[in-house]
Simulated scan of single mutants.
Amino acid sequence: MAIPTIRVGLTAATRTMAGTSAVPKYSDKENGIIATDRETGEKLYTVMIFLMEEDRAETLKVTVPANGLPNGLKPGMPVKTVDLVARPWANLFNGQISSGVAYRVSALELDSGE
């Protein structure tokens, strides 16, 4: 069964900035196993980004494949998201439901402002 995804459209006025450096996304943190993309096998990383529009800002934790990370990415750098999608999720554990939205991009690009 395919995982439902929702393409996230950003306006021309939307600005995004890296809030953290890329950190490995673990499928098994205790054993140091980094999560990989199910289709490509590419290692996955997470980056916190700030999404700013007009008078508001949101923090998004996005998953990025290793080949989609720009060289030299540091907190505070302006970035562009490539193919930003949202994936709703829900889990049932010990009778309790937890749910949320996971964000993913195919790449982050450094934004020179041009």
Rank of each mutant, 00 (worst) to 15 (best):
M1L: 10
I3R: 11
I3L: 11
I3Q: 13
P4R: 14
P4I: 10
T5P: 01
T5D: 01
I6G: 00
R7N: 10
R7W: 01
R7M: 08
R7D: 11
V8Y: 03
G9P: 10
A12Q: 13
A13V: 01
A13M: 05
T14K: 00
T14S: 10
R15N: 04
T16P: 03
M17D: 00
A18L: 09
G19E: 05
G19V: 00
A22Y: 12
A22C: 03
A22Q: 07
A22F: 08
V23E: 15
P24I: 06
K25A: 06
K25H: 07
K25G: 00
K25T: 03
K25W: 05
Y26A: 06
D28C: 10
D28V: 07
K29L: 15
N31I: 11
N31Q: 15
G32R: 06
G32S: 01
I33N: 10
I33T: 13
R38Q: 07
R38S: 09
R38N: 03
E39T: 05
E39H: 06
T40S: 15
T40N: 08
T40A: 10
G41R: 06
E42R: 12
K43F: 08
K43M: 08
L44G: 05
Y45M: 10
V47K: 02
V47N: 07
V47L: 05
M48R: 09
F50L: 12
L51G: 00
L51T: 05
M52F: 07
M52H: 11
M52N: 13
D55A: 12
R56M: 13
R56Y: 08
R56Q: 09
R56C: 04
A57P: 01
A57H: 08
K61Y: 00
V62P: 06
V62G: 05
T63Q: 07
V64P: 04
V64H: 05
A66S: 03
A66G: 00
N67R: 13
N67V: 11
L69N: 07
P70T: 09
P70G: 11
N71P: 05
N71K: 12
N71Q: 14
N71V: 13
N71H: 09
G72P: 06
L73E: 07
K74A: 15
K74L: 14
P75A: 15
P75S: 14
P78Q: 05
P78E: 09
V79G: 04
K80Y: 02
T81V: 15
V82P: 01
D83F: 02
D83R: 07
D83Y: 02
D83C: 01
L84A: 11
L84R: 11
L84H: 12
V85T: 15
V85N: 03
V85Y: 06
A86Y: 08
R87K: 15
R87M: 15
R87D: 03
W89C: 02
W89G: 00
W89V: 00
A90S: 15
N91G: 02
L92R: 10
N94C: 08
G95C: 05
G95I: 07
Q96H: 12
Q96D: 10
I97M: 13
S98L: 00
S99G: 07
V101D: 01
R104L: 09
V105K: 02
A107T: 01
A107W: 06
A107L: 04
L108T: 05
L108N: 07
L108Y: 08
E109F: 09
E109I: 02
L110Q: 03
L110E: 09
D111F: 05
S112H: 08
S112G: 06
S112E: 13
